[in-house]
Write a protein that binds this DNA or RNA. Structure first.
Lengths: 337, 337
DNA sequence: TTGTATGCGTTATCAA
DNA sequence: TTGATAACGCATACAA
């Protein structure tokens, strides 16, 4: 192996390894001149302190892991971008893990991360329907963890969420004001906390406006594009809703496709509103009314929260929950005439 | 520190650390019974071999770095997803770095990755316009590197690309066949190899069909949304093209917005075709004719290529270039009447 | 301000 | 089949 290391650099300069080491650590006492000398020679020889040796020695990795259910989703891409930015500014690196909404993968990822590879975890969860008590099994050794968007309510850890209840309430109210009284609510997994919160806003808005609630109008969809196509088409033809509120953007897309196929006119026959971070919602046919979550900001806040925890050694009374505000943007998919 | 390590586990079982270590390595000779015993106890105590110690010892990290210009882009999200999948299957982890199209960041990332943190790099480049000779400065120590999509032609390293020249040729020909003879070509950076290749297809198609080439119709755009809006509106009004071919999807979106503002009807007044991996292109108004790259597959191939290199110790004659095929999907944005 | 010596947690070599 | 020991590359306590 002809690769450079601290010892060779030390020999080349006729110095000891500790002096070399000090040149790369900001706090240590070292003569400015020797430091400059060392850094120059290091550059020449392309030397960098070995990351794994440093981390083994210092017992931390300057790395955080990000676990998301999916990547082909504007929301998560933007959130990751936000996390990446803040991490970079703090000198941290990020590892990405995609669960594909598979609970088992989530458990495996988390388990394996507890081997020193990461100093902390930022996660949007996948397994609400399953036992998430596994997170409590690490005892005091559990890595600092921050949830964003999709959370486990019974796990006590900081989280960044949006005002979903309120947004759902307003979205439903908007549909009612536009004249809808048979509003279908499309959800991927009713038992997900995010699904439940969003559904409650829907229910309460119906109640407030004395719109009768029909349980059949809660349509439970899947993660499969093909299955959803069937489910939604059947719902549209059998239930004849005049409004659709979808809890995630891909269900809105599926609704659009279904309407194209079934010759249902949006917004004339059916009004559609959706949670979505799609930047080109105005370009859809028709332009889609959205509840837009501040995805990038959510990622940034989650990262900041994690760094606060990682930095703090005493202050444990940091705010445990950050709630950001989504914005409803009315477009043609819910307009009249 | 109450955390578990190999020594404590050894003590707990009255065994030596070497035996413990062997239980976790598949190749070593070890009594099946003791191995089972060790693994059971390890699970009980939540022990996992420390990643950094292992890596320091073995001089490899089982980690690859992925560097992309941006994340809020369907193409790169899908590509990363593909990379992630293959990496996972091979027991590798992935680090994500976003350059925001900043050459300096790219250089910094690459430099810092040469400290053992990653075993290899998969990158779509950002700095074609700059000096990319920095990649040759590492000598024999340069990490295995695979390019995808946006490449440096003068750097000798494996790459995964698509048949861009051909796609551009066909796209331009399609517009000509639809009756266009003033076809604008919108590009982000003319000097990027990907921009050049794609442009050549455009030029050759014009030539083949004896459509006069007007240099002004090559419109050089930027990375700023606002700037592009101005540039494109001016191009549409001054140059009066009857067709637009955009080299990246966000320029197609910008064109749509501009046309909405200027009351230009697509496809009647202006036909639009674009490179794009947008899955909801059919939902746009009007649905967008695209040249769709197999983004996920590109990511997968890039990862496979890298793993071939990482695995190979002798066979250096592996194919240095993988070319995948894009597909043109005709939709309403280029249809007549 | 610099050098010496030790240990971080693991794996490989060698001996038992 | 198992154990003792050295080494991976670095950072710190302590000595000089």
């Amino acid at each position: 192996m002809d690769s450079i290391n601290i010892k060779k650099l030390a020999e080349a300069l006729n110095l000891s390894t500790s002096t070399i080491s000090r040149a790369f650590r900001d706090n240590s006492d070292i003569n400015a001149a020797t430091k400059a000398l060392i850094l120059a020679k290091a550059k020449e020889l392309n030397y960098q302190p070995n990351h794994y040796a440093s981390n083994l020695r210092e017992q931390k990795s300057k790395t955080i892991a990000v676990i998301v259910p999916e990547l082909a989703n504007n929301y998560f891409s933007q959130a990751i971008h936000g996390i990446e930015r803040v991490a970079r500014e703090n000198g941290y690196h990020i590892l990405i893990y995609v669960t594909d909404d598979d609970y088992q993968k989530e458990v495996t990822f988390i388990r394996h991360l507890h081997n020193g590879r990461a100093d902390g975890i930022i996660m949007s969860v996948s397994g609400e329907a399953n036992d998430h008590n596994y997170l409590n099994k690490f005892g005091a050794k559990r890595l600092p963890l921050v949830f964003f968007d999709r959370i486990y309510e019974d796990i006590d850890t900081p989280r960044v969420i949006t005002n979903d209840y309120n947004s759902s309430f307003l979205a439903t109210e908007h549909l009612i004001e536009q004249g809808c009284n048979r509003i279908a609510y499309l959800v991927v997994n009713k038992s997900l906390s995010i699904g439940k919160t969003r559904m409650q806003g829907y229910l309460d808005a119906l109640a407030k406006h004395h719109v009768p609630f029909d349980e059949n109008l809660i349509v439970d969809c899947s993660n499969s594009y093909e299955e959803n196509s069937v489910i939604i088409k059947e719902a549209l033809t059998k239930l004849k809703p005049d409004g659709v509120f979808t809890s995630v953007e891909r269900l809105a897309f599926a609704t659009y496709y279904a309407c194209y196929d079934l010759n249902i006119n949006i917004p004339k026959d059916l009004k559609v509103i959706s949670f979505s971070s799609l930047e080109i919602a105005p370009l859809l046919n028709p332009s889609l009314t959205t509840i837009t979550q501040p995805a990038t900001e959510i990622g940034e806040e989650a990262a900041k929260l994690l760094f606060t925890i990682l930095g703090d050694h005493a202050d444990k009374n940091l705010s445990n929950e950050v709630v950001l505000t989504s914005k409803m943007i009315k477009r043609n998919s819910t307009m009249n005439g």
